[in-house]
Design a protein around this nucleic acid. Structure first.
Lengths: 167, 167
DNA sequence: TTTTGAAATGTTATAATATAACAAAACAAA
DNA sequence: TTTGTTTTGTTATATTATAACATTTCAAAA
């Protein structure tokens, strides 16, 4: 489990990714049990593959990885991803046609994504101020919100530093 | 030109769409001149088709409409759309793989989109509070923003009313 | 006015992403 | 152990987007 309070996780040197994955698997297991959903071998494997990357990964990339275990076709991957999306274990990044593991699957949420264009690492948060600003703007215009997509592209702190050094 | 102060334009009964389109064409012309870009017949036509819908429209939908004028292939449409995106005359809605006309092409911006899932009409705004919340959250996490995607799905005021009546 | 080079468009093929439809298998509950 | 439901396999195909190269158009130079 990460020590940070914030649900933010740009990957960096200190990050213990083995532990991070293991933790995520346990949490996922729990979420499925709670929701009385089957965490089958396939679903577990797809979730693990997505989580391992720790960056947005395309469905066909997942497929390639999955095919190392044996034959598999697109619907297999999409169905597993759809399941994981449904119960909130992964999120889809619309602007990249890609998927990321969800960092706080225990409580349903939508969240916002900060994605580094250099190293492709990302951070997921559920920022009260952003949520409030959207809700307030929606209310002002009489719009009733069902779902929101907030994807912010740029450079993570680590890659900014690298960029400064080269220039 | 719409009389509303806000760059919001869910379409409704009062909306004079003929005038709206005509106005948009004039503005687009001006923007191209200013940026010394050619507003060719094709680009003009594609812009007009997108604007006419007044809702997010897919590239292949544009293609179909375009083909009524004569033969055309996907790259033709994508190139025109890419041009229009580049100079800010249209926006792409990533979560729908679709395109919308930009309501304030004279000043570059990114904006946020409220999209009605019932009637598919949309509103574009550039809400200071949302922008500020994103900027502040980014700063807090040391993230440097290059571009943001904010797409909010739900029901426009008009369709909420309709829904209330039927239930 | 003609030439010329760049920009735009046409055309064919194909890549990348995603789903439909139906068959087989796995599984949970009766 | 049966039965019905859920999950997965499999084949085909839909949808969205781009690569590569040929042709045309156009504006500005000569």
């Amino acid at each position: 489990m990460t020590k940070e309070k914030l649900p933010l996780h740009f990957i960096n040197e200190e990050h213990d990714h083995e532990a991070c994955i293991a933790d995520a698997m346990v949490q996922a297991e729990r979420v499925c049990q709670q929701q009385k959903q089957r965490f089958t071998a396939l679903r577990r494997r797809v979730f693990e593959l997505v989580w391992q990357q720790h960056r947005p990964i395309g469905a066909y990339e997942v497929l390639e990885l999955l095919q190392r275990d044996g034959r598999a076709a697109p619907p297999t991957v999409y169905r597993a991803l759809d399941f994981l999306l449904e119960i909130g274990l992964v999120h889809r990044i619309a602007s990249l046609n890609a998927y990321v593991g969800c960092i706080q699957p225990h409580q349903p949420h939508e969240g916002q994504f900060f994605i580094c264009e250099a190293c492709r690492s990302y951070a997921e948060l559920d920022d009260g101020a952003i949520n409030a600003a959207i809700a307030s703007s929606a209310e002002e215009h009489g719009f009733s919100v069902r779902q929101h997509t907030v994807e912010i592209m740029g450079l993570c702190p680590h890659c900014q530093k690298k960029e400064d050094e080269t220039s």
